[in-house]
Design a protein around this nucleic acid. Sequence first.
DNA 1: CCTTGAACCTCTAGTGACTGGAGCAATTAG
DNA 2: CTAATTGCTCCAGTCACTAGAGGTTCAAGG
Lengths: 136, 136
Amino acid sequence: MYSIGYLSKKTGVKVPTIRYYEDIGLLSSERNAGNQRRYSAQGLERLSFIRHARDLGLSLEAIRDLLALGADPDAPCADVHAITRAHLADVQARIAKLKRLEKELKRIEANCHAEDVGECYVIEALADHGLCAGAH
Amino acid sequence: MYSIGYLSKKTGVKVPTIRYYEDIGLLSSERNAGNQRRYSAQGLERLSFIRHARDLGLSLEAIRDLLALGADPDAPCADVHAITRAHLADVQARIAKLKRLEKELKRIEANCHAEDVGECYVIEALADHGLCAGAH
DNA sequence: CCTTGAACCTCTAGTGACTGGAGCAATTAG
DNA sequence: CTAATTGCTCCAGTCACTAGAGGTTCAAGG
């Protein structure tokens, strides 16, 4: 049985975060005589799963669903893919949006050749959406 | 003088959000006899500025700084650019990270040819970081 | 002038995913 | 046995809103 600090070291998830995962029902633990959390190898595995899925940007809600699916070997694999594919679409949409922002920020930056705020194109552009090149 | 609802319609910022901006000191307003908010043309302009900067992804903290700079025509334009350039760098970093995620998610998806969760590669990959292609 | 309905007011609490601190209790190493 | 470390619970804060309850004011029509 592992302590919460050991799990933290092994997975890179901070101790308060592990407690938080327990609070919201993602992770469970036993307690020893002194009321301290003790985890099995399965607990460590489960936390690693959560950590990795978080690193990939999945929401805790999505992870909750994945964990439920993972617990049932006969569940259709397609259900898992539905979750990850939806996430992928979301990631792609965010990339697209950020790229538009990047372009617009660069354009605004490049248009300013002033010395002080009085003539700064950045300030003007922010005040007036009409000066924008593309939609955002 | 404009009402809060009018400002909301003109800028696309929701009424509670405008009140929130006032709470945190980004925007101020006068009050009429019945204690309702009344805005000048400057107020409308200021809110448009905030709205546009938010659309470009700037934080309210950054916007607060930009507004302070914008109020002083003799302030160095470079200070404005420092803020927007920092934001641009942040946007670019986020794009890079999301692209790594996109790649990894696609790879994991493509590697699974199973029917049910028992053999699903997605579940395996999430449980074991060692199966990952790149770092994330 | 009166009524109705829309718009407004304040205040509180909730979102997601944590993070940090206070003030204790338990464990572990020497 | 003692000191240092680790653990416990509970509460509050982050960011940028959003929603709801319960009440007030305003503008238009009759």
